[in-house]
């Protein structure tokens, strides 16, 4: 049944044709997607060596969603990434070294060893790393959006959630509040087919997760999350809309989690056919081909990018491995702020 709301949604979300992406920006997309993948490969290597503790998570398949969306933000905007968006931290200005320190739980890391992986927050960079369970981030992102609005900053908040995370009550509560209060929130559901081992068929029966936007009276759209330029343009549109005071947008970005939930999980429950389908849509491979065809990328340029990334990762790993662990006395005193 069509109503006013659905009409509004389809009208709002014609991607702007004049939304030009420069060659330089395309190279930035490529660089950051590669950095994201190589960073996680390094983390996996260190995990297998026993240097990274706890867990290691792969975002393979999600690079276009994380990078394309993060590039739609301005410096004064806020980022609430989840664990499949490590590259978004770097786009927002976090250093490879700091994040590596955080994975290793070292005292000089952003979370000072009180927490690990992408779990930290940096008010200066306006990054609020993931919270578990992930859905609990959305009400918090609302609070940041509300305060930002009260301070008249004209900033927006970009938050990500998974297909699984969209089932928790916080998702509903937060979108109800954000829509009524017209908060500048962009919520991207990264539908990567699986929540741990649970297939999306057991998570929802709607055709598109963005259909849920109708229920909140907000804009919603479903896009191919492996297309970095499409993700960028869509998010940019939503960001501009939120900045104008038109309230939140729900974007479903359809991707595939190409590895298990974490390093311990071999994802043997994923049918081979599904994996094969998505392998052909590897966001980095596809984009690399496109940039070669557009003569923006060459073998020489590619090698330069990859060796620069490797240099950064080697340096960051070296610093992180040789950095001290925190001591209990410091941690014990920091339960309350002064």
């Amino acid at each position: 049944m069509k109503n006013k709301t659905t009409k509004k949604i389809s009208k709002t979300y014609l991607i702007k044709k004049n939304n030009h992406i420069s060659s330089n920006m395309k190279l930035q997309f490529y660089y950051h997607m590669q950095l994201m993948r190589k960073f996680e490969e390094t983390v996996f290597k260190l995990y297998r060596q026993g240097k990274v503790v706890g867990g290691a998570y792969s975002s393979e398949g999600n690079e276009a969603t994380a990078i394309g969306s993060a590039f739609a933000l301005e410096k004064n905007d806020y980022l609430f990434p989840m664990h499949r968006d490590i590259g978004a931290h770097f786009v927002k200005g976090q250093s490879v070294k700091n994040l590596m320190l955080n994975y290793l739980g070292k005292s000089q890391s952003p979370a000072r060893g009180h927490d690990g992986t992408g779990h930290y927050a940096d008010m200066k960079l306006k990054i609020f790393g993931n919270i578990s369970p992930l859905g609990a981030m959305i009400p918090l992102a609302n609070g940041v959006a509300l305060a930002s609005k009260m301070k008249k900053e004209k900033s927006v908040v970009l938050n990500y959630i998974g297909d699984g995370g969209s089932s928790i009550g916080d998702f509903h509560e937060a979108l109800v509040m954000a829509s009524v209060m017209k908060l500048p929130l962009i919520l991207i559901i990264e539908n990567n087919q699986y929540a741990y081992s649970t297939h999306i068929s057991k998570q929802f029966i709607v055709e598109k997760l963005s259909d849920r936007a109708i229920g909140y009276g907000i804009n919603g759209i479903t896009i191919d999350g492996t297309d970095v330029e499409l993700v960028y343009k869509t998010t940019k549109d939503a960001v501009e809309n939120a900045r104008k005071g038109n309230g939140p947008t729900l974007i479903e970005s359809v991707t595939m989690r190409m590895q298990g939930h974490a390093i311990h999980d071999d994802a043997s429950y994923v049918p081979k056919k599904l994996m094969d389908y998505w392998k052909k849509k590897d966001p980095i491979v596809v984009y690399e081909k496109k940039l070669f065809a557009e003569k923006i990328l060459s073998d020489k340029k590619k090698n330069e990018i990859l060796s620069e990334i490797q240099r950064q990762l080697d340096e960051a790993s070296d610093v992180a491995l040789n950095s001290p662990f925190p001591v209990w006395e410091d941690a014990n005193e920091k339960v309350f702020a002064e």
């Binding site: 009400p139 918090l140 992102a141 609302n142 609070g143 916080d170 937060a174 509040m177």
Partner: peptide, 10 residues
């Protein structure tokens, strides 16, 4: 949850 979450974020 939305009220306390929003208060916390703010």
């Amino acid at each position: 949850n939305a009220i306390i979450g929003a208060a916390t974020g703010a």
